[in-house]
Protein backbone atom coordinates (compact mmCIF):
# COMPACT_ATOMS: atom_id res chain seq x y z
CA UNK A 1 0.00 0.00 0.00
CA UNK A 2 2.72 2.42 0.99
CA UNK A 3 4.56 1.61 -2.24
CA UNK A 4 1.49 2.58 -4.22
CA UNK A 5 1.22 5.87 -2.34
CA UNK A 6 4.89 6.65 -3.01
CA UNK A 7 4.44 6.00 -6.72
CA UNK A 8 1.22 7.97 -7.15
CA UNK A 9 2.45 10.90 -5.11
CA UNK A 10 5.72 11.04 -7.04
CA UNK A 11 4.21 10.74 -10.50
CA UNK A 12 1.10 12.88 -10.24
CA UNK A 13 0.86 14.91 -7.05
CA UNK A 14 4.48 16.03 -6.79
CA UNK A 15 5.30 15.76 -10.46
CA UNK A 16 8.95 16.66 -10.74
CA UNK A 17 8.59 18.86 -13.82
CA UNK A 18 5.20 20.47 -13.46
CA UNK A 19 5.08 21.12 -9.72
CA UNK A 20 8.71 21.07 -8.58
CA UNK A 21 10.31 22.68 -11.64
CA UNK A 22 13.20 20.26 -11.97
CA UNK A 23 14.42 19.10 -15.35
CA UNK A 24 12.83 21.94 -17.28
CA UNK A 25 15.70 22.18 -19.79
CA UNK A 26 15.28 18.71 -21.32
CA UNK A 27 11.53 19.12 -20.88
CA UNK A 28 11.58 22.08 -23.28
CA UNK A 29 14.52 20.86 -25.35
CA UNK A 30 13.87 17.26 -26.34
CA UNK A 31 10.11 17.22 -26.35
CA UNK A 32 9.30 17.96 -29.96
CA UNK A 33 8.77 14.31 -30.91
CA UNK A 34 7.14 11.52 -28.92
CA UNK A 35 9.87 9.02 -29.93
CA UNK A 36 12.75 11.11 -28.59
CA UNK A 37 10.75 11.95 -25.50
CA UNK A 38 10.37 8.24 -24.76
CA UNK A 39 14.09 7.63 -25.23
CA UNK A 40 14.96 10.49 -22.92
CA UNK A 41 12.46 9.34 -20.30
CA UNK A 42 13.91 5.82 -20.30
CA UNK A 43 17.48 7.12 -20.04
CA UNK A 44 16.60 9.42 -17.14
CA UNK A 45 14.83 6.62 -15.31
CA UNK A 46 17.85 4.35 -15.70
CA UNK A 47 20.42 6.93 -14.60
CA UNK A 48 18.28 8.27 -11.77
CA UNK A 49 17.79 4.86 -10.15
CA UNK A 50 21.50 4.04 -10.26
CA UNK A 51 22.70 7.47 -9.18
CA UNK A 52 20.25 7.62 -6.27
CA UNK A 53 21.47 4.21 -5.13
CA UNK A 54 25.11 5.29 -5.28
CA UNK A 55 24.65 8.73 -3.74
CA UNK A 56 22.51 7.27 -0.94
CA UNK A 57 25.32 4.88 0.00
CA UNK A 58 27.84 7.69 -0.35
CA UNK A 59 25.85 9.93 1.98
CA UNK A 60 25.26 7.42 4.76
CA UNK A 61 28.48 5.39 4.61
CA UNK A 62 31.06 8.05 3.77
CA UNK A 63 29.88 11.64 4.24
CA UNK A 64 27.90 11.21 7.48
CA UNK A 65 30.43 9.00 9.33
CA UNK A 66 33.23 11.42 8.41
CA UNK A 67 31.12 14.44 9.37
CA UNK A 68 31.64 16.15 6.03
CA UNK A 69 28.04 16.50 4.86
CA UNK A 70 28.92 19.94 3.53
CA UNK A 71 30.80 18.21 0.69
CA UNK A 72 27.47 16.76 -0.49
CA UNK A 73 26.95 18.96 -3.54
CA UNK A 74 30.50 18.50 -4.79
CA UNK A 75 30.68 14.74 -4.36
CA UNK A 76 27.18 14.08 -5.67
CA UNK A 77 27.67 15.96 -8.93
CA UNK A 78 31.06 14.33 -9.53
CA UNK A 79 29.69 10.88 -8.84
CA UNK A 80 26.72 11.48 -11.13
CA UNK A 81 28.93 12.82 -13.92
CA UNK A 82 31.30 9.88 -13.62
CA UNK A 83 28.41 7.45 -13.42
CA UNK A 84 26.82 8.74 -16.60
CA UNK A 85 30.14 8.36 -18.44
CA UNK A 86 30.54 4.86 -17.07
CA UNK A 87 27.02 3.81 -18.01
CA UNK A 88 27.68 5.09 -21.50
CA UNK A 89 30.88 3.04 -21.86
CA UNK A 90 29.39 -0.13 -20.35
CA UNK A 91 26.23 0.14 -22.41
CA UNK A 92 28.27 0.54 -25.58
CA UNK A 93 30.14 -2.71 -24.81
CA UNK A 94 27.41 -5.01 -23.54
CA UNK A 95 24.24 -3.83 -25.24
CA UNK A 96 24.75 -1.93 -28.49
CA UNK A 97 21.00 -1.98 -29.14
CA UNK A 98 20.20 -0.22 -25.88
CA UNK A 99 23.10 2.13 -26.43
CA UNK A 100 21.71 3.06 -29.81
CA UNK A 101 18.37 3.88 -28.23
CA UNK A 102 19.59 5.76 -25.16
CA UNK A 103 23.14 6.75 -26.10
CA UNK A 104 22.58 10.22 -27.45
CA UNK A 105 20.59 11.24 -24.38
CA UNK A 106 23.15 10.14 -21.81
CA UNK A 107 25.58 13.10 -22.06
CA UNK A 108 22.63 15.47 -21.69
CA UNK A 109 21.65 13.90 -18.39
CA UNK A 110 24.66 15.11 -16.40
CA UNK A 111 23.33 18.65 -16.54
CA UNK A 112 19.75 17.53 -15.98
CA UNK A 113 19.00 18.96 -12.59
CA UNK A 114 16.37 16.37 -11.74
CA UNK A 115 19.04 13.70 -11.23
CA UNK A 116 21.03 15.75 -8.72
CA UNK A 117 17.81 17.22 -7.33
CA UNK A 118 16.27 13.86 -6.49
CA UNK A 119 19.58 12.54 -5.12
CA UNK A 120 19.74 15.46 -2.69
CA UNK A 121 16.01 15.32 -1.94
CA UNK A 122 15.97 11.70 -0.75
CA UNK A 123 18.79 12.21 1.74
CA UNK A 124 17.75 15.59 3.10
CA UNK A 125 13.98 15.57 3.46
CA UNK A 126 11.60 13.70 5.71
CA UNK A 127 8.78 11.97 3.93
CA UNK A 128 5.42 10.96 5.29
CA UNK A 129 3.61 8.41 3.17
CA UNK A 130 0.52 7.79 5.22
CA UNK A 131 2.54 7.00 8.35
CA UNK A 132 5.07 8.80 10.53
CA UNK A 133 7.44 11.23 8.86
CA UNK A 134 10.81 9.57 8.42
CA UNK A 135 13.98 9.61 6.38
CA UNK A 136 13.74 7.19 3.47
CA UNK A 137 15.64 3.90 3.61
CA UNK A 138 17.63 2.57 0.68
CA UNK A 139 14.79 0.65 -0.96
CA UNK A 140 12.32 3.52 -0.63
CA UNK A 141 14.89 5.96 -1.97
CA UNK A 142 15.45 3.98 -5.14
CA UNK A 143 11.73 3.38 -5.55
CA UNK A 144 11.03 7.06 -5.03
CA UNK A 145 13.66 8.06 -7.59
CA UNK A 146 12.26 5.64 -10.18
CA UNK A 147 8.76 6.97 -9.52
CA UNK A 148 10.03 10.53 -9.86
CA UNK A 149 11.68 9.61 -13.16
CA UNK A 150 8.39 8.08 -14.29
CA UNK A 151 6.70 11.36 -13.45
CA UNK A 152 9.29 13.10 -15.59
CA UNK A 153 8.54 10.62 -18.38
CA UNK A 154 4.78 11.08 -18.14
CA UNK A 155 5.09 14.87 -18.31
CA UNK A 156 7.63 14.70 -21.14
CA UNK A 157 5.63 12.31 -23.31
CA UNK A 158 2.32 14.13 -22.77
CA UNK A 159 4.04 17.39 -23.60
CA UNK A 160 5.69 15.97 -26.72
CA UNK A 161 2.32 14.70 -27.93
CA UNK A 162 0.80 18.17 -27.57
CA UNK A 163 3.77 19.83 -29.25
CA UNK A 164 3.54 17.51 -32.24
CA UNK A 165 -0.01 18.77 -32.76
CA UNK A 166 1.09 22.33 -32.14
CA UNK A 167 3.51 22.18 -35.07
CA UNK A 168 0.53 22.14 -37.40
CA UNK A 169 -1.27 25.11 -35.89
CA UNK A 170 -0.81 28.77 -36.67
CA UNK A 171 1.05 30.37 -33.77
CA UNK A 172 1.56 34.17 -33.57
CA UNK A 173 5.07 35.08 -34.66
CA UNK A 174 6.24 36.43 -31.29
CA UNK A 175 5.09 33.24 -29.55
CA UNK A 176 6.92 30.83 -31.88
CA UNK A 177 9.26 28.41 -30.18
CA UNK A 178 9.79 28.63 -26.43
CA UNK A 179 6.94 30.99 -25.39
CA UNK A 180 4.17 28.83 -26.81
CA UNK A 181 5.84 25.76 -25.28
CA UNK A 182 5.78 27.52 -21.92
CA UNK A 183 2.12 28.41 -22.27
CA UNK A 184 1.39 24.77 -23.11
CA UNK A 185 3.39 23.65 -20.08
CA UNK A 186 1.43 26.11 -17.94
CA UNK A 187 -1.88 24.61 -19.04
CA UNK A 188 -0.50 21.13 -18.37
CA UNK A 189 0.59 22.28 -14.91
CA UNK A 190 -2.95 23.58 -14.30
CA UNK A 191 -4.27 20.14 -15.18
CA UNK A 192 -1.79 18.46 -12.84
CA UNK A 193 -2.91 20.75 -10.02
CA UNK A 194 -6.09 18.73 -10.08
CA UNK A 195 -4.15 15.81 -8.60
CA UNK A 196 -3.06 17.74 -5.53
CA UNK A 197 -4.53 16.47 -2.32
CA UNK A 198 -4.97 13.02 -3.82
CA UNK A 199 -2.53 11.40 -1.41
Amino acid sequence: MEILIIIISAIFVNNIVLTQFLGICPFLGVSTKVDTAMGMAAAVCFVMAISTLVTYLLQYYILVPLGIEFMQTLTFILVIAALVQMIEIILKKISPALYKALGIFLPLITTNCCVLGVAIMVVSKEFAFGGEAHMLNLGESVLYSVAMAMGFGVALILFAGIREQLELSNVPKAFKGVPIALVTAGILALAFMGFSGLV
Binding site: F21, V178, P179, L182, V183, G186, A189, M193
Partner: peptide, 22 residues
Amino acid sequence: LAFVLAPGAFFVLAYLMVIFRK
Protein backbone atom coordinates in the same frame (compact mmCIF):
# COMPACT_ATOMS: atom_id res chain seq x y z
CA LEU B 1 -3.80 32.41 -6.78
CA ALA B 2 -2.74 30.46 -9.87
CA PHE B 3 0.06 32.95 -10.48
CA VAL B 4 1.84 32.04 -7.27
CA LEU B 5 1.40 28.35 -8.04
CA ALA B 6 3.19 26.35 -10.71
CA PRO B 7 1.09 27.23 -13.80
CA GLY B 8 1.55 30.96 -13.25
CA ALA B 9 5.32 30.57 -13.46
CA PHE B 10 5.04 29.19 -16.98
CA PHE B 11 2.50 31.79 -18.13
CA VAL B 12 4.37 34.81 -16.74
CA LEU B 13 7.68 33.66 -18.21
CA ALA B 14 6.06 33.04 -21.60
CA TYR B 15 4.45 36.46 -21.79
CA LEU B 16 7.51 38.33 -20.48
CA MET B 17 9.61 36.53 -23.08
CA VAL B 18 7.25 37.69 -25.84
CA ILE B 19 7.37 41.28 -24.57
CA PHE B 20 11.18 41.15 -24.36
CA ARG B 21 11.32 39.89 -27.95
CA LYS B 22 9.08 42.72 -29.13
